[in-house]
Structure formats: structure tokens, C-alpha cells
Design a protein around this nucleic acid. Structure first.
Lengths: 141, 141
DNA sequence: CCCTTTGGTTGAGTGACTAAAGTTTCGCGC
DNA sequence: GCGCGAAACTTTAGTCACTCAACCAAAGGG
């Protein structure tokens, strides 16, 4: 572990801020909050159980309840009961939801506009550096 | 502008997420929210005007009013009237505030624990890449 | 001196989030 | 097959961050 200059830490901060702000803006163009867009992004094909979503999003189940309720109210998502376990409600994305999700993805220009400033080789370099930084990241889940 | 792989975008996402989460945790160890810690970090020596803070933090003035009120209630910050312009209130950090700020800084282990995983040369590399990515970033302020 | 602008606060409203207390359903042990 | 604890989700209550619109007070220029 080497010394880390404040300058680098500051650059990282700015980078993170820019990324966050860009995603916020992208979600907003579709009339969503970042959290809502993020949830939409986590919906696989057949519909995920609320509990699974809470686990993936690292937040409370009741939070997911509310997020889903808001999205459902806009018709972007539907709660479908699981046929084999009536406790479970699976969240599935609607056609409108898929459309909105596409809008958000296209509006999120950070990867193309920012990361795209790097050459292919630089992107590989960045990828390697990030991999190293995030190295032992998931021995906790 | 080259193609950007989803894999790199995902790595960046994870990196940003880890950074955000780390700062949240650091603030929480001092009983603060990230926004409160962030405000504390923006307090220069002699005290900054509310409006300047709002501009720096890129948020509404009334938001700053509330953040400062909460921090003031905890004695971490004080509103001092400007002697030359009675409209202006300058926010200055108290001794307790400085202590809490130090706590947050020390608890924010992301730079040392994560960026510190890189060698000095790799850090320079990362710095250059970030500089390129953030290149034309402030022609809008 | 009005009159406008500037600096800050208040109030109303939304959304994200958490913690605690429900409700319904499942499934196990007996 | 019944009772009971656990699982899955919801409800309620509360906090915080944030925005917008309306507001008050001081400054400053005609």
C-alpha cells in the first residue's frame, strides 16, 4: 500500500460526482429518480421477487415496496403473484417500462461521451486499474 | 471516440458505487449524512456565505439553509453575520465541527485502502486517464 | 426616497430511506 | 391436519435531502 496523493483522491471524487450527476440527469429525462431507474435496470426477463431485489439493491424490503408502488402507479412495472408461493410477488417490467428504460439508457451518455474519450488501449488500461482497485470486493455478499 | 464495452461501464459503475458507499459510511461514523459531511468539507477558514456554499454544492440556497440549521443544532457550525453587509450570514466551523470533520476524513478509507492498492506508477496512470476523461469539464460553470 | 436586486429563510411537497409492527402464506413437527 | 414459527411483503411513522414558490430584510442606485 503506497501513499495516495490528495490530487488523485480529488480527481476520483470529481469523476464519481460526474458519473452520479450524469445518471441522475439520464433518469430525469424519463421522469424517474435514479433509484427508480436503477430498479428498472435490475428487472430480468421473467420477473424478480421483491426480496431478491432488496438484496441486490442493498436496501430494505419496504423501500422496494415503495419504489415498486411508484413505478407500478406509472404503469412501468407490474406485480405478478408467484403461482407456486402466494407470499411472493414478482416484479415484471411492462412494455412501457421497457421503453422508459431504453430512454434512460440512451440518455446516460457518460460511458460513450466520457469513457469514449479514451483510446481502446487506454480503456483496457483503465479496466485493469479498476479491477485491481476493486479486487477483493465481493467476499462479503 | 471509440466504442465502450459494457464490461468497462459496469466496472466504472461498481467503482463509483463503492466510493459513494464508503463516503456514506465514513460520514455515518460521525453521525452525519453524506451531504452534511460534504458541506463541512467545504468550509474554508474564515467562513463562507450561504449563497457561495449553495453555488459550490450545486444545490438550492434553501437546501443549504436546512443543512446548516441541522449542523448548527449540533454545534458543529455557527452562523456569523457579516459586519459589512447585514444580509450575509457566514458559516464558520466550530472546534467540535473541526473534530467531527477530522473523524470523517479518517473514517473515509477509500483512497488509502482502495487507491492504495495501486503502485505509484499505476496511480499516475490512473490520474492521467481520469484527467483525460474529465477533460472539458468546467467550461459550463 | 422609492424600487429593484441580493441574501437568506419559510412552507409545502416529493422522494429515498429505515425501523418497527402488521398480515398472509408456507412448511415443518407432531 | 393442526399449531407455530419463519418467510415475504406491506403499512406506518419518522428522518433527511432536495426543489420550488413565496416571503422578509438589507443594500444601493436612480
Amino acid at each position: 500500500m503506497t501513499e495516495v496523493t490528495d490530487a488523485l483522491a480529488q480527481q476520483v471524487w470529481d469523476f464519481v460526482y460526474a458519473h452520479d450527476a450524469a445518471y441522475d440527469r439520464a433518469a430525469q429525462t424519463a421522469g424517474l429518480s435514479a433509484a427508480q431507474a436503477c430498479l428498472l435496470e435490475h428487472l430480468a426477463g421473467d420477473g424478480r421477487a421483491m426480496g431478491d431485489l432488496a438484496e441486490e439493491l442493498l436496501c430494505d424490503a419496504s423501500n422496494v415496496t415503495q419504489l415498486v408502488s411508484r413505478l407500478e402507479a406509472r404503469g412501468l412495472v407490474a406485480r405478478v403473484p408467484d403461482p407456486t408461493d402466494r407470499r411472493i410477488k414478482r416484479v415484471s417490467i411492462t412494455t412501457a417500462g421497457r421503453r422508459v428504460r431504453r430512454t434512460v439508457r440512451q440518455a446516460f451518455e457518460f460511458p460513450s461521451e466520457r469513457l469514449g474519450l479514451l483510446t481502446e488501449q487506454e480503456q483496457r488500461q483503465l479496466s485493469e486499474l479498476l479491477a485491481k482497485v476493486l479486487a477483493p470486493d465481493r467476499p462479503l455478499g
